[in-house]
């Protein structure tokens, strides 16, 4: 099992390195949206800054994860099916997507801070939230991206399926990020972090149960 997960992860990294255009495309996506926000607001209000940050990160995540399954040909998926267990595929994809989103959110955060300022006071808390956000997005969107990849119109459907499901998480992340504008310790917001973590746990458990049904089709 562990063996399968590591080799699938290795495969994903090799694929990413060879198909440079996908990750470069996403980085340019973050670059251009940062500039659009800069032209629109110059230096946005702290709460607007946070809302924009998460909305753009949501779009970047959906684009990044949607390609995860749809870029692979049907035949290749059938090949994975013969060599790996569905759970290994799910776990390797979740880990890979988490790392990819973490990278993208850090790149975006740097570009965004350079253009539109950085109003966050409590850095440690905000970094925790960004990490939590990447994990949550990766867990929720991985299963949905496979659902969307099964349809003919996967890009539109990816957005349609994932927005309503991701709204509760993103609302909590925005609420938590607003706390990081002030001098608030992580302990004070730990109930909210607990809710996000428990939603993640439930989603991961449901994905774990349902993924094999999606996979063998």
């Amino acid at each position: 099992m562990l063996n399968q997960i590591t080799s699938l992860l290795y495969k994903d990294f090799v694929l990413e390195r060879r198909l440079k255009h996908t990750i470069n495309g996403l980085v340019i996506y973050t670059l251009s949206t940062s500039f659009i926000i800069y032209f629109a607001y110059n230096q946005p209000e702290p709460t607007t800054w946070i809302a924009n940050f998460w909305i753009i990160l949501l779009f970047v995540s959906i684009n990044a994860i949607a390609k995860g399954f749809s870029q692979e040909k049907i035949n290749r998926l059938a090949y994975y099916y013969t060599i790996a267990s569905p759970i290994a595929v799910l776990i390797s994809k979740v880990i890979y997507n988490t790392l990819l989103l973490l990278l993208l959110s850090i790149v975006f955060l740097i570009i965004y801070s350079l253009t539109s300022g950085y109003p966050i006071f409590n850095n440690a808390l905000f970094m925790t939230i960004v990490l939590l956000g990447s994990i949550s997005f990766a867990i929720t969107l991985t299963c949905l991206s496979l659902i969307a990849a099964k349809t003919s119109n996967s890009n539109t459907l990816m957005a349609v399926l994932s927005f309503p499901v991701i709204i509760p998480i993103i609302l909590l992340l925005i609420k938590l990020s607003k706390a990081s504008l002030l001098d608030i310790s992580i302990l004070d917001v730990s109930p909210d972090i607990g809710i996000v973590a428990s939603i993640d746990t439930v989603t991961l458990a449901v994905s774990y149960i349902l993924f094999p049904y999606l996979w063998t089709d």
């Binding site: 949905l144 349902l210 999606l214």
Partner: peptide, 8 residues
């Protein structure tokens, strides 16, 4: 697929 989305 829609059953999976429904449960999810």
């Amino acid at each position: 697929i829609s059953s999976v989305y429904n449960i999810f």
